[in-house]
Design a protein around this nucleic acid. Structure first.
Lengths: 260, 260
DNA sequence: GTATGCATCTCGGGA
DNA sequence: TCCCGAGGTGCATAC
């Protein structure tokens, strides 16, 4: 059973209500507010109609009428959050995070609407398919997509300068460093490969190759790779992975049919 | 004047109401839902109590009861968004972004609460102090914080391999490349400096130094820098800048340049 | 429009 | 805990 609590828009009443709901029920407040965050950065907002969410884990999210990212926020785990009345009888939220010395305060000059609610059914499981790890797994199982005759040695191999996505060996016995990017390659990606290459070159001398695998590789990045004797391989993962998910979904159906 | 519209929790009525509010008023729905995003990645959520925001610019934000980041979302500018009834009489939201071939749908098995509101006062101005640019400005005015006798030559200097944060000259006439990070340095930051260094080495030969300025520099990054004859300088910007903001607030009438 | 780099990045994994 | 790198990164800015 879920409960919604419609709260008062009068600050004096609301502040009491909020302090009973805080950390127990999720709080939503719509109103005219100004605010200030002072910590890792100092950010000041003038009066405007905004929308505040306060979750039970201490998450604070302040939204403007447009845009995906909140205009100000606080990560979970900071607290304690305090609701109080200013000497002008305005509702004020305050919080302070000791570790990072962060202050966050919001003052509501007007409350348009406020409510609290609790959730009973919380199923936080999310299945995700198609991230870089899935791409690496796919490539490790299908190395011929990159080059014939590749043998996978390791994935996520740790080195002094970072983790190498895939380490392989080619037909000619060269060790091959493979850096994988789901998206279009950037100059920074090429430098990342170069970083691994330079580090392992000290060990493998000339028997070493480096390949940047990406959804696409712009000319600028190709030239850069060429300059350092590195290679690239374009594999359109963004086209491949939807096909794979459908295949896996089809297989799941077959398994279910076996049960009936 | 601001308006709050409390909407029906009956799907049949709600779907009509939502289609009148869509793109005009911000919509909030609390309910039990499952959902799927299929585009750059495939993400599936099982039934759980969640909280949906639909803004007028097409932003869609779906929040779990905990956590800062939405569990699923859509950036502004995609649309069109559609609300409809499934054959089970459930409220369903659908949207499709042609350009990136992204599908996003949310199905509510139960509506706990729904409302819409419009905002009149929208003052989106936010003042921010303390980002990397401010750090660079501070260092350019206080080069002795990094090293005695430094003369600033340029900031944001463009090169073939990117922008150099600060270019300076030391007492001995060496050109100094300075890469600035507000936060803890990462191996990638060290390599970025190395990029600039290698590029300018062709011009300045041995009369060139590189310094990574950061809030802190982990040992592994120090070793990496040392290996390539690069240097680092730890400056706790996170401690310095709140002092600066307070000074500037107290002394607005005084010439700030006196302090820098 | 694309390219580039910062971000109060956030988040999760691994040592 | 710190460190490290991916992200449906988002987002502003420069071109």
């Amino acid at each position: 059973m879920n409960h919604i609590f419609f709260l008062s828009t009068s600050p004096e009443i609301l502040v009491e209500e909020l302090n009973t709901h805080l950390n127990k029920n999720i709080i939503l407040i719509l109103g005219l507010c100004h605010s200030e965050f002072d910590g890792r950065i100092k950010s000041t907002l003038n009066s405007s109609d905004r929308f505040l969410i306060v979750k039970n884990d201490g998450t604070i999210i302040l939204h403007d009428p447009i845009g995906l990212k909140p205009i100000q926020w606080q990560k979970p785990g900071a607290g304690p959050i305090k609701f109080l009345l200013t000497n002008k009888n305005e509702l004020k939220m305050e919080t302070f995070r000791l570790k990072t010395n962060e202050n966050f305060s919001i003052t509501f000059q007007e409350i348009h609407s406020a409510l609290a609610y609790n959730t009973v059914l919380e199923n936080r499981f999310a299945s995700v398919f198609g991230d870089e790890k899935d791409f690496i797994t796919f490539l490790a199982k299908n190395p011929e997509r990159m080059e014939e005759g590749l043998t996978i040695i390791a994935t996520e191999k740790e080195t002094e300068v970072g983790y190498i996505d895939i380490l392989a060996m080619d037909r000619s016995g060269n060790t091959v460093i493979i850096e994988v990017k789901k998206q279009q390659a950037t100059p920074a990606d090429a430098f990342q490969l170069q970083r691994y290459f330079n580090n392992l070159k000290l060990i493998y001398s000339t028997k070493l190759r480096g390949i940047l695998v990406a959804n696409s590789v712009p000319k600028r990045v190709r030239r850069q790779l060429f300059k350092y004797n590195l290679e690239y391989c374009e594999i359109p993962w963004q086209e491949i992975f939807p096909t794979l998910t459908r295949l896996s979904l089809n297989l799941k159906t077959v398994n279910l049919n076996d049960f009936f």
